[in-house]
């Protein structure tokens, strides 16, 4: 029951998609079933994102309630979760039952602050706090990649030298200053890099990898559908 039922559900859910591929989605009953199943998957998929949020709240609440080391930071995380989430799930009009109760407490002119629309608290927190911080986290990688290039990018052997030379050539080609520099040697040089490196050797290698990975993904999918691959169920 604990493994057979999920395996059967996975098989049926996948089979509908495989068979659906060979049918006209607009004109058959099966097409309607496929459409309905896909709609259901987008709904269930939404709940999976909430699992992560529940985990974050549980872990941080535990640290705060036990006042472990640096618990103040975990408290900041918890406050941030609720500051973002609570205004977002509040009603934006008094049309519903909950809305009428809510706007009997708060003036209805405040409704623009709630929900997820433009000018809401949710949107403001995203635009002025969350978004710049996420962009900065990734911007810091520029420093790390420069440091890594300086310390680890060595021409230790022929293969590494080839990699290094291509990287330098591409770095030059992708900047206006570098492209102007390459044109000193030949006006066609940037075009050759595009044709023979990016659209030539690079395409060949990427194609090999894409074909290999796609065959792997297809066989893994078949294993899941047939119930051979069950690791996604976890332990127990």
């Amino acid at each position: 029951m604990r493994t057979t039922l999920p395996v059967a559900v996975a098989f049926l859910s996948g089979l509908i998609m495989v068979v659906g591929f060979f049918m006209n989605p607009e004109k058959t009953f099966f097409g309607n079933v496929e459409e309905e199943v896909l709609q259901w998957v987008t709904i269930v998929g939404g709940f999976t994102l909430l699992l992560g949020v529940v985990s974050i709240v549980r872990v941080n609440s535990r640290v705060v309630s036990q006042k472990r080391k640096d618990w103040i930071y975990n408290l900041a995380t918890l406050i941030s979760v609720f500051a973002m989430a609570i205004p977002a799930i509040m009603p934006i009009s008094s049309d519903s039952n909950f809305g009428s109760i809510f706007y009997s407490i708060f003036p209805e002119s405040w409704s623009f602050l709630f929900g997820t629309g433009t000018y809401s608290i949710y949107d403001w927190l995203f635009n002025y706090m969350d978004s710049p911080m996420m962009a900065t986290m990734f911007a810091m990688l520029a420093f790390y990649i420069a440091s890594a290039a300086y310390r680890a990018f060595r021409a230790r052997n022929a293969e590494a030298t080839l990699l290094l030379l291509t990287a330098v050539l591409v770095m030059l080609w992708r900047i206006p200053m570098g492209e102007a520099f390459l044109r000193i040697f030949s006006d066609s040089l940037p075009g050759y890099i595009n044709t023979y490196v990016m659209s030539g050797v690079n395409v060949a290698v990427q194609r090999g990898i894409i074909i290999g990975a796609a065959l792997g993904a297809a066989s893994m999918s078949l294993r899941i559908l047939l119930g051979i691959e069950r690791t996604y169920m976890g332990k127990g």
Partner: peptide
């Protein structure tokens, strides 16, 4: 930590 919290809260909304 604020970043982690806000991102999780974003999912909820």
């Amino acid at each position: 930590h604020i970043f982690a919290g806000l991102s999780a809260g974003y999912y909820v909304g």
